[in-house]
């Protein structure tokens, strides 16, 4: 009779191995620059939600959003050697993202303007619905539609400033760093953008009732 027992799983084997500690941005960047292209995936995974959140403020169609995000990450990879590491990588990446979004707005300026007259009949009450509380999905969608519709009427610079300054509540200094504009230019553009927004809102009201 074979008395040999099957080896029991040891306690140590039953416990799953601890996940390797997450590599810092600096370590990943060093690896990528040393030729390990695959290491870049970790950076993409880490920052893609933020980038998608930012790009969705400027692009409407999901296909456009994906294309812009892709462009941002490809540019990031190409320009990674110019990252000096004196500021957090996230700041550097956000600068690149905002500037790419601005380029996108300028390239698509003509295609994006949606005339008031084109708004469908079933959206006839969108303004009232959107202006109310955003309690349910329908209202939230209507609100999103309204915000997008108004913002798409603005010039690229005005849209950029209104989004960063008013909606994301960033400081003038921060916007200057992100966009590469001087602080004075940001202030001037903010002043013009507010005037443009007022005009657009008034035009929207006229378009609805005339």
């Amino acid at each position: 009779m074979n008395t040999a027992e099957a080896p029991r799983p040891t306690r140590a084997a039953a416990i799953p191995e601890p996940a390797p500690p997450e590599r810092s941005d600096a370590e990943i960047i060093r690896a990528v620059l040393a030729g390990d292209t695959e290491a870049f995936e970790a950076l993409v995974v880490r920052y893609q939600p933020k980038i998608f959140g930012t790009v969705r403020r400027y692009a409407r169609r999901e296909s456009e959003v994906e294309d812009v995000v892709q462009e941002i990450f490809l540019k990031t990879f190409q320009k990674l050697s110019s990252f000096r590491g004196d500021a957090p990588f996230e700041h550097w990446l956000m600068k690149l993202a905002v500037r790419t979004c601005y380029d996108f707005l300028r390239q698509h300026q003509r295609n994006r303007e949606r005339p008031i007259a084109e708004i469908a009949d079933d959206e006839s009450d969108w303004l009232e619905r959107a202006a109310g509380e955003t309690k349910d999905t329908t209202q939230a969608n209507a609100a999103r539609e309204l915000v997008e519709m108004i913002l798409s009427q603005l010039s690229p610079a005005a849209r950029m400033v209104i989004t960063l300054l008013e909606i994301e509540e960033r400081s003038v200094k921060e916007i200057a760093k992100l966009t590469g504009w001087s602080e004075t230019l940001v202030k001037v553009r903010a002043f013009r953008a507010r005037a443009e927004m007022k005009k657009t809102l008034a035009r929207t009201a006229m378009g609805k009732y005339l």
Binding site: A130, V147, M197
Partner: peptide
């Protein structure tokens, strides 16, 4: 004509919208 929504209300409305950070499957 008075706008149906003032700039202040518009900004308030835009701020109230949640940031959409969802990522398409296997985008990386």
């Amino acid at each position: 004509m008075k706008p149906l929504i003032s700039p202040e209300e518009f900004v308030k409305l835009a701020r109230s919208l949640p940031r959409e950070e969802r990522v398409p499957y296997a985008f990386e």
